[in-house]
Design a protein around this nucleic acid. Structure first.
Lengths: 259, 259
DNA sequence: AGTCGTAACTCGTAAGGACAAGTGACGTCT
DNA sequence: AGACGTCACTTGTCCTTACGAGTTACGACT
């Protein structure tokens, strides 16, 4: 048994002791931790203190607590899904559509109209409050059950150049890309990866466990004159998926966003 | 003032009310929220209930709480740093070294020896418990103060093919790449992006705020015969940096990791 | 004028008690 | 045998009370 140490708050000492016991292997993955009552006796602290310590470990993603059952050591498992983002062209010079072959739509896509925010405007090189077509999808990987949220945003002014886009804002990305290439655009993409904690609605629709961040991929499709045409947002639980890029030669610069 | 609603636990109702007030703009970014005492009076609940609600919003990354001062609405700011990962070669056919021009080393790098874990072994196509050289760096972006952790892992058996590597495990990635190309390797890279919550030591060294996940980039350098040579791990706070990839043509497949 | 202490605010920690609600096993009743 | 109710266990919620500790402003003292 790991003894509690001097420094810091009591609940931090308890948390550190439990954390140490987990990392040292005393508590193995998927095993049941001592109950709150047992931890109270073990460390001679009150229940709020124990709960505070447990909450800290929960926020770190180290344990899972289930009502009526107990606390379990989370297995440090790797994401089951590796989403590969290849760079090279296919042999016939065509590109393969993203999300085409794997994900299935769990619901009917919902289409709507919005306006650019600061963030979406930045990606689309537009000011705020510009009109957009939007389409939200809930995707599921049938094999692993992984869920993902997909959003397509197309500026009104882009649909003017490609009227076919305006007819069906709820098309799949594959169909949209085909429309654009048929309109003479030579496409390229830029993908920006961020991570953040989920909002309550994201946590429920993606069925995220505690302390699970979201991997947030923003993909901008560029056409003629490098004009940004479409913004796609793709969100998955970071416990279920990872993104893999393949790079044949590399140049990295770092750009600072103007304040 | 947003009234609290019926469903769910009391503290959840309070949290939802405050969250609504923030999202609706009643409380603007960087502004001071009502103190715990005021929230107690406002919603007619006890202090633990208020603290529970505040803790929930804190875990969502919606607010920042500072001892002695109060709770502040977090500004939904974008990461200040965009780390661009370009795909195309430079004009002279050379690649530019990553991390060379921007990051400065905050401390002396520490070199050591370890063994592969399940994860690192997977990336390096090695079994577990294979011997590795390791080198850890703490990097800083001098302009924004953003900190990052960098780790280089080189298998022993790779250094046998390139003795220069064994002499100085603490070399910068640029020097290591140069050594490898001089040894006749034609390099390419694969980068895997994951996100997870920080461990306590990561939170302190990266100086992360509450509810801030880590963007975790694993970069594998491949040489002749596509052999994995080097594994680099790069970790930044997701509040400070994002990763940007530029893709000229795209093919995406999704691979499942064997259980 | 400048320094310093104090008071009044803030959140942080800790303890106590009480009851609700989910879970699983065990025994009883049908 | 099967269904069902009860009980003992778990965590979840909520309250009260008390004190520690960081922050700020104001006023008194030097």
């Amino acid at each position: 048994m790991t003894e509690i140490q001097r420094p810091g708050a009591l609940y931090q000492q308890v948390a550190a002791a439990i954390r140490g016991a987990i990392l040292s292997g005393e508590f193995t993955p998927d095993s049941l931790l001592p109950s709150e009552a047992q931890l109270m006796a073990r460390y001679q602290v009150s229940r709020p203190t124990v709960r505070n310590a447990v909450a800290a470990l929960r926020a770190e993603g180290l344990i899972d607590v289930r009502h009526g059952k107990g606390s379990f050591v989370r297995s440090g498992s790797q994401p089951a899904l590796t989403i590969e983002r290849r760079i090279s062209r296919t042999s016939d010079g065509q590109f393969v559509m993203p999300n085409g072959d794997v994900w299935t739509e769990a619901e009917q896509p919902s289409t709507y109209r919005t306006r650019t925010t600061k963030t979406t405007g930045h990606f689309l090189a537009l000011n705020e409050e510009e009109a957009l077509f939007g389409c939200d999808r809930l995707l599921t990987d049938p094999e692993t059950g992984t869920r993902a949220m997909h959003r397509t945003l197309i500026p009104f002014e882009v649909t003017e150049g490609a009227p076919a886009l305006a007819e069906e804002p709820g098309k799949t990305p594959a169909e949209v890309y085909r429309t654009l290439t048929q309109a003479g655009h030579k496409l390229w993409w830029s993908e920006t990866v961020r991570a953040h904690m989920p909002m309550p609605d994201e946590r429920t629709t993606l069925q995220l466990p505690d302390a699970t961040p979201i991997l947030h991929l923003s993909r901008v499709t560029h056409g003629a004159n490098d004009r940004p045409l479409i913004l796609e947002e793709f969100r998955v639980g970071a416990d279920r998926a990872e993104l893999a890029y393949r790079i044949t030669a590399d140049k990295q610069t770092t750009r600072r966003r103007p304040a």
